[in-house]
């Protein structure tokens, strides 16, 4: 019998520190598989954020640096400009990328920096204990929107993939989910395309990954997957928003 599925080489053997059912682990694995498949692990430098995935530096078996909250795209810019032959990715949550780091992500995308951004959208702040994120849905209850997100005073959830795909410097943007095997397979393809786009020097690529946070949503992992499909996907449609013709 042949092994047809195992942990990718670009992941260390350290067990993930994430809560049971949290999608970070799946996203980590998909990124690591892409690095393996393109054979770029040894020339990759990853930038981890502030938030639950601040520990990503432990789990990815490649060179890693931790950025300040929201600043990963600027740090990645510095790395990629100094070492253009390296493969550079950031791994950011929604508080990091879509709140405190909006300036950095918009301008890094707009400059067309040849990096890949893995953006985890789980509609909540995880590590600080379940506060409202810029991506929190209207009416969603969090620690800081205890009566539900009221768009009159709290604004509407930001659609990052749509917003950034209007920028000319962007080569590839897609939104995927991880709530069932079919989606996970598609997510894998999108992540591969994003890295392929970087490897071919096409410019900025980003994959927005709709993910669950069972702990802070107050749901079991299975219920959380259902909640994601029933609530997040209708507001955050899946699919590709920008593709260079050559990357397919």
């Amino acid at each position: 019998m042949k092994k047809v599925f195992e942990s990718p080489k670009s992941l260390t053997k350290d067990p993930f520190t994430y809560c049971p059912g949290c999608h970070h682990g799946i996203a980590h694995r998909l990124v690591a598989e892409a690095l393996d498949e393109f054979g770029v692990r040894e020339k990759t430098i990853g930038v981890c954020p502030v938030g639950c995935s601040v520990f990503a530096y432990v789990f990815f078996d490649c060179d890693m640096i931790c950025a300040a909250h929201g600043r990963a795209p600027a740090v990645a810019t510095g790395i990629k400009r100094a070492k253009p032959d390296s493969i550079v990715f950031t791994y950011q949550g929604d508080g990091d990328l879509a709140s405190i780091g909006t300036a950095e992500i918009v301008h890094t995308a707009n400059r067309g920096e040849n990096i890949t951004v893995i953006f985890i959208n789980n509609a909540i702040y995880g590590m600080t204990g379940g506060q409202m994120a810029p991506t929190t849905l209207v009416g969603q209850v969090t620690q800081t929107s205890p009566y539900g997100r009221d768009p009159k005073t709290m604004g509407y959830p930001i659609k990052v993939a749509e917003m950034l795909s209007t920028l000319k410097g962007v080569a590839y943007i897609s939104r995927v989910a991880l709530s069932k095997p079919a989606y996970i397979l598609k997510a894998k393809k999108a992540i591969r395309k994003a890295f392929q786009s970087q490897i071919e020097g096409k410019g900025f690529s980003l994959v927005e990954i709709l993910s669950t946070c069972p702990t802070n949503w107050g749901l079991s992992p299975i219920e959380a997957n259902k909640w994601l499909e029933e609530n997040m996907i209708p507001y955050y449609p899946l699919g590709e928003f920008k593709t260079p013709e050559e990357v397919s």
Partner: peptide, 26 residues
């Protein structure tokens, strides 16, 4: 050589952080 007009002073110092991590003088 690299010159980047960053979007803010915050971004600029973080670009320095990234570049410096690869060993160049920034």
């Amino acid at each position: 050589a690299v010159f980047v007009q960053a979007e803010s002073e915050i971004a600029a110092i973080n670009m320095v952080y990234g570049a410096a991590s690869t060993g160049v003088r920034a």
